[in-house]
Amino acid sequence: MKVLRFISAALCDSSWRRTYARLCVGLFFYLFFAGLIIPQRAGAQETPYFVTYSHHLEEPGNLEIELSTNYATQTGGNDFIAPWVEFEYGVKAWWTSEFYLDSQGTFGDSALFTGFRWENRFRPLMREHWINPVLYVEYENTNGADKTMIEVVGFDTQADHAIRNAIASKDHQHELETKLILSSDYKGWNISENFIAEKNLGHDPWEFGYAAGASRPLRLAAAPEVCNLCLENFLVGAEFYGGLGASWNLSMSGTSHYAAQIVAWELPNGVSFRVSPGFGLNSNSHTFLLRWGVSYEIEGFGRKVRSWFR
């Protein structure tokens, strides 16, 4: 019933109609480009995490388009759904660039576009090692109503998301976020740890956070035939993430922490689905999170774009 009320409210709310219109236009272009250039075969080596990053970068020339959503229960306010779109491009084998568009809709409140992010990941070591570092730099231009929760830093708590959108959206955030990504592959497992440092460019001290995850395909060897429902196409894992306080007070208390399970299904044609139920680990955290996402891997996108200019 709650969902139905949300949908009905959405249809009555003009800001929702605008959001849906934008989504439809986006989806149209998405399908248009996908229909034009997506190959019949595609394959990436993705890890299924929503928050944690591994050292596996996008293959050079490939573009991945992903639509993801974060649903969260809210104490002292209304539950919300925060969708975001990602465009991830492999510029080089050692450099991946990613652009995000964030939005959110809060039950009984409003829906709005909350900003954009542009991240770059660089692999400094050219060989595989026991632990593989990747350097991450991101610029964020979002507002205070952003609820995608792609990372948790500083003293982020669920109370931050209880503020009404009209008020929260007035707080503009220009932030620089850096991460040290450490990642290992061992016997089919990927184990990744991220250390996050975020700075509001206008004010505020550095804030810190962490994310760690482990994942594995259900079957390590591939079957001889092409199949969609083979165990090799499913990945399972878990991730943990939370805040570590700020430069004036490094602490794991007074902030939020989460644990989430993840299941991913990667189809041989480059489409993949992910779902991740998550749970808050203390009273500062949202009790329940549900993330889901669908992505398309477009091989040779860069080559196709270059061919338009020849």
Binding site: Q45, L57, K92, K187, N190, A221
Partner: peptide, 22 residues
């Protein structure tokens, strides 16, 4: 597993070892 990253060949360490042998 290692690729030739600087020259454009990605590392395929994300594939399980069994699949690389295949």
């Amino acid at each position: 597993r290692n690729g030739n990253v600087w020259a454009g060949m990605p590392s395929w360490s994300g594939l399980p070892e069994q699949r690389r042998w295949q």
